[in-house]
C-alpha cells in the first residue's frame, strides 16, 4: 500500500506504544523491582528451602512429562500420518482438545476422575495418591502439553514422506532400524521444537496444577505455585517478584531457543 510518511509513522507509534505499555514496561518494571535491592537479595530469595524445593519439584515434573510426551507424541504422530484406520479424524480432534480446555477445567476434570468418589478414585486405597500428589500434577501437565509434540512432528512426517523409509527397507533395514536411523533423525528439529514448547509450558503451568496440588510450601509447590502463595498467602511481594523473574528468565531462554530452532527448521 502506498502510505504517506505521516500515516506510517502514526501507525508505527500506535503499535509500538501498545507493545511498550502492555509488554515492555511491565517486564522492565518487574526486573527493576527484583534487582533494585541488589542481586544478593534476589539470590537469597530464590535460595530459600521452599524455593529450592519448588525448583526441584518443577524440574522433576518436566523430567517425567517430557519423555512421556516424546514417546506418546511421536507414536501418535506416526499413527496419524502413516496409518489409515477408522476414527482417525476423531483422534485428530482429541489431540487438539487440550488447546480448547481451560487449565482450571483440566484440574476439575482430573479431580472428577481420580479424586475421592471419582471413577478411578479407588486407586487411592491402593496407596496411589493422584489428586494432591505428584501423579496428579504430572497428569495435569501432560494434559495441557499433549498437543505440542504431535503437532510439531506431524507436518515433518508428512513432508519427508515414505520414500526414504522404503529405501531403507530395500537396503535391509528392519522397522526399528529404519525408525532410529531414518525417521527419527529426519524429524529431529520438529521434535526438538515440540519438546521446547512442552518444557516451557510445563515450567509455567499454573491453573491445572494448582487445582490438583496440596500446595504445601517445601513439599508440593511448583515454581508457579510458589509465586502465587508468596504474593497471596505470605504477603511477600518481593519474594513473588524474584520467583517470577526466575521463571521469566527460563521463559526468555525458551523464547531464544524457539527463535533459533525456527531458523534451523526452515533451513533443513
Amino acid at each position: 500500500m502506498t502510505t504517506s510518511t505521516t500515516s506510517r509513522l502514526t501507525l508505527r507509534t500506535l503499535a509500538l506504544a501498545y507493545l511498550v505499555a502492555l509488554l515492555a514496561v511491565p517486564v522492565l518494571m518487574i526486573l527493576w523491582r527484583t534487582f533494585e535491592p541488589g542481586f544478593g537479595a534476589f539470590w537469597e530469595s530464590i535460595r530459600t528451602p521452599a524455593a529450592i524445593s519448588a525448583m526441584n519439584l518443577t524440574l522433576l515434573i518436566v523430567a517425567i512429562v517430557v519423555p512421556l510426551n516424546v514417546v506418546f507424541g511421536v507414536t501418535t504422530a506416526l499413527a496419524l500420518v502413516r496409518g489409515s484406520f477408522r476414527g482417525k479424524g476423531f483422534i485428530e480432534a482429541v489431540v487438539d482438545l487440550p488447546f480448547a480446555v481451560s487449565p482450571v477445567v483440566v484440574g476439575v476434570s482430573l479431580i472428577m476422575l481420580w479424586g475421592v468418589g471419582g471413577w478411578f478414585g479407588g486407586v487411592e486405597h491402593l496407596g496411589f495418591r493422584v489428586i494432591f500428589g505428584l501423579p496428579g500434577m504430572v497428569i495435569a501437565t501432560i494434559f495441557v502439553t499433549l498437543p505440542f509434540v504431535v503437532r510439531e512432528v506431524e507436518p515433518v512426517l508428512v513432508e519427508i514422506g515414505t520414500e526414504q523409509e522404503q529405501a531403507a527397507a530395500t537396503l535391509g533395514a528392519s522397522g526399528w532400524q529404519t525408525f532410529w536411523r531414518i525417521t527419527l533423525p529426519a524429524m529431529r528439529w520438529g521434535l526438538t521444537y515440540g519438546v521446547v514448547l512442552t518444557i516451557a509450558r510445563s515450567l509455567g503451568e499454573f491453573g491445572a496444577v494448582t487445582m490438583v496440588s496440596s500446595n504445601f510450601p517445601g513439599i508440593s509447590q511448583t515454581l508457579t505455585l510458589l509465586v502465587n502463595s508468596r504474593y497471596i498467602d505470605d504477603q511477600n511481594t518481593y519474594g513473588a517478584y524474584a520467583a517470577a523473574t526466575l521463571l521469566m528468565g527460563l521463559a526468555v531462554v525458551t523464547l531464544l531457543l524457539m527463535t533459533l530452532l525456527d531458523r534451523k527448521r526452515s533451513t533443513t
Partner: peptide
C-alpha cells in the same frame, strides 16, 4: 511478540501488577 506465549501466566499476572 511471542513473549506472552513463553511467559507463565502467573508471571504475567505479577508483571502487570508490578506496574
Amino acid at each position: 511478540i511471542d513473549l506472552p506465549f513463553a511467559l507463565p501466566t502467573i508471571v504475567a499476572s505479577i508483571v502487570l501488577l508490578s506496574l
